[in-house]
Design a binder for these strands. Structure first.
Lengths: 187, 187
DNA sequence: GATTGAATTTAACATATGTTAAATAATCAT
DNA sequence: ATGATTATTTAACATATGTTAAATTCAATC
């Protein structure tokens, strides 16, 4: 859990008691490359913190596997549309490398907010930052060409290109694998 | 402010003192159709609540005017990438009808969070719900055709079609106005 | 290192959407 | 109502991306 606590310190430091309470409702989880952290159809009740490895959030649209997002070390992952609504998610979370995660029990976490407003502030900030990321992503999908999106990805998230197979990257960019290959061949 | 308080009650009821404190840092603003609520380049320091009318958040990409989002009665509006980072926004907010807004001073609001954790919870929930909306929007932009996106809009946000000129809607859907016109002509 | 299967690229063609320009239609001010 | 402005549609053509299939490269296992 050490890494989680370090990351929290960087976002919004909390008291030792709050830290302890958080650790109490969390457990470490290890998964192998290819395994599902959370299956499609499952209602999201956990917020994950990535200590080591890479994940993707994915779903199917007309039998096509689509990657919604990638997550690496030191990020928090959840399926917001399920976590915040209580509905089952059409999305799954898959390990793209062997991963070490911290699983935070979301229901218990939300209860802790009454006792520790500092934890609520911490997670408010985490959500805010995820929100900003998705807003920026919309901008990119809304009016950049596929080539621009690919170049932006190389610049802003080189880990994705280095560590993730192209077949997952193409759908993340909103294009087919053939298109991605073509774009890569241009330069 | 009555309408704002009603809406708050529906999201997360707060005590009379918290309500009073919130009203204290807010003021009503009226603007005419076409006017800018916030200019491009301005650093976002206000969260708006729409009492009456319609707004859009917009920006320019290569001299082309692009609408990022529409907002109607009973929604909260801010430019997250600026509000939560303190950086000037490349986006503006424009009134598409004569509007009546409540302007909430965000800095003062954030200060109130120390005194009223219930207000922090309220705004955490508001942010969560905006976040869920943007995540769903990404899904739509990522792999639906323009025609699918248009049909979804008609179904899920009929107000947009009824009240907003098409020239603003096309860029919101990620297409040109000509394409939108073509799609509308299909059926 | 040979064999197999998966990942990636290439090719050829199809289609959706973009671009530019002109034609209508709708709206607004006089 | 008239004319002027703005919004929307239509047309013709250009281009980006999709689709299917095959070729190639890469990676894992024996």
């Amino acid at each position: 859990m050490h890494q989680l606590l370090l990351q929290i310190k960087a976002i919004h430091p909390v008291t030792a008691e709050a830290e302890k309470a958080l650790v109490n409702i969390s457990r470490e989880v290890e998964l192998l490359k290819g395994e599902d952290v959370q299956r499609i159809g499952h209602t999201c009740k956990t917020i994950y913190f990535v200590q080591e490895g890479a994940l993707r959030v994915y779903y199917f649209k007309n039998d096509t596997d689509i990657t919604e997002s990638f997550e690496f070390e030191n990020s928090f992952v959840a399926r917001a549309e399920s976590l915040f609504t209580g509905k089952p998610s059409r999305k799954g979370i898959q390990a793209l490398e062997n991963v070490s995660l911290v699983a935070i029990h979301s229901q218990k976490l939300f209860q802790l907010f009454d006792q520790f407003p500092e934890l609520e502030r911490l997670f408010r900030k985490i959500i805010e930052s995820s929100y900003v990321n998705t807003v920026n992503r919309i901008e990119s999908l809304q009016f950049n060409t596929a080539e621009e999106r690919y170049n932006t990805l190389i610049r802003q998230a080189p880990d994705v290109i280095k560590r993730i197979p192209l077949k997952y990257i193409s759908s993340y960019l909103g294009i087919t694998q053939v298109s991605l290959s073509r774009i890569r061949g241009l330069k």
